[in-house]
């Protein structure tokens, strides 16, 4: 080896050593929760949590436990309740906690709740989770539900499965409630322009990180958070609806559980005729895919329903228009009493 190549070899070794010592923490482990993504309730004992149905859930309660129970259901599937926290603020002297004992939780495999592999991420488990949650916090009387996006679908799944356990529900732009509705919008859910910056950033990033376990899967999912759904989410550069940690596995496998041979087969509406309480739908006037017209057809699946529109806002109205969202929910809940 010539002298110059010896120097080159030494320089390469020095570069490698420099890389390894450039950070006080040394070489970081991408699989370790807390590095790329936050710790879940499995790694951080300080997070509020409950055990249920073979899993551990990130969960908080707010208000007087003597009040009727209101369960808040976040979107995704796979997101978390951080983006719904403004619904607990006080607007015009009123907070939902004045009337309800509010349960905020990250669903199975989502947010800061325990991660699971594919076998545990099924609609059957989700159905059992919410039944047990209602049983735990409100064993003697039916619960109220407030769901956003996938959370509205989840609320409908609960109503369809256990109609006697639900006292009322507000659904903020629920996603497709059955396979027919899903097939109608499936191509518009994600912006799959093969020359777009976000999609190529996503693929390009696999030369840095590959989604080999939950921490990296969840981290990869953040690459699409800002730009992948331009027809749903607005204000993504200023005050976007935040979250703690996406559950990539649940957002993949729970959707797959409702699909066979590439075609959606699920139906959350088959038993809605057993639920005679009026359900309130809410849509943002700016939502392009599952907005007013789409919800007007979905609400027909319920025996009794109405629809409220929040002008000037899109799919994330529960964050950007939290005051209007709370006012609409309050008006609905008071109408039931």
């Amino acid at each position: 080896m010539s002298k110059i190549n010896k120097y080159a070899a030494m320089a390469l070794v020095m570069l490698a050593v420099n890389m390894m010592t450039a950070c006080d923490d040394g070489i970081l482990d991408p699989a370790e929760a807390g590095n790329l993504v936050p710790k879940t309730v499995m790694e951080d004992a300080a997070l509020p949590a409950i055990e249920m149905n073979g899993s551990r859930f990130h969960l908080e309660t707010f208000g007087d436990a003597a009040n009727p129970v209101l369960i808040i259901l976040h979107g995704g599937p796979g997101s978390d309740y951080r983006g719904l926290m403004r619904l607990l603020d006080r607007y015009d002297g009123y907070s939902l906690t004045d009337s309800f004992y509010v349960v905020m939780w990250d669903q199975r495999g989502a947010g800061l709740s325990q991660r699971h592999d594919k076998d545990a991420l099924t609609l059957d488990n989700y159905r059992e989770d919410i039944r047990l949650l209602a049983e735990r916090f409100s064993p003697d009387r039916p619960v109220y539900l407030l769901g956003h996006s996938w959370g509205g679908m989840y609320a409908t799944l609960m109503i369809n499965s256990f109609p006697q356990r639900v006292a009322g529900a507000v659904l903020f732009e629920p996603g497709p409630l059955n396979a027919d509705f899903y097939e109608e919008v499936r191509d518009d859910i994600i912006d799959l322009d093969f020359f777009s910056e976000w999609l190529n950033d996503w693929a390009w990033s696999q030369q840095f990180f590959t989604p080999d376990e939950h921490a990296r899967m969840d981290f990869e999912r953040t690459l699409g958070a800002r730009s992948a759904q331009p027809h749903f989410h607005r204000r993504m550069d200023v005050d976007p609806m935040p979250y703690w940690r996406q559950g990539a596995a649940v957002s993949t496998y729970l959707v797959e559980d409702g699909i066979e041979d590439g075609k959606a087969v699920y139906d959350f509406t088959s038993n809605l005729s057993a639920f005679n309480t009026k359900v309130r739908f809410v849509a943002g006037s700016l939502t392009e895919v599952i907005g007013k017209e789409f919800q007007q057809r979905q609400m027909q699946k319920f025996p009794a329903s109405d629809l409220r529109i929040i002008d000037g806002y899109g799919h994330d109205m529960v964050w950007h228009a939290a005051a209007q969202s709370v006012a609409i929910a309050r008006d609905y809940f008071e109408s039931l009493r």
Partner: peptide, 26 residues
């Protein structure tokens, strides 16, 4: 792999994400 998380990620998702060299990340 050296990573510097950007402001958007820190502001709206995870403020305490760790910058630095990650080994064998992909």
């Amino acid at each position: 792999t050296h990573v510097s998380h950007n402001d958007w990620y820190r502001d709206y998702i995870y403020a305490d994400a760790k910058d630095g060299w990650y080994g064998g990340a992909g």
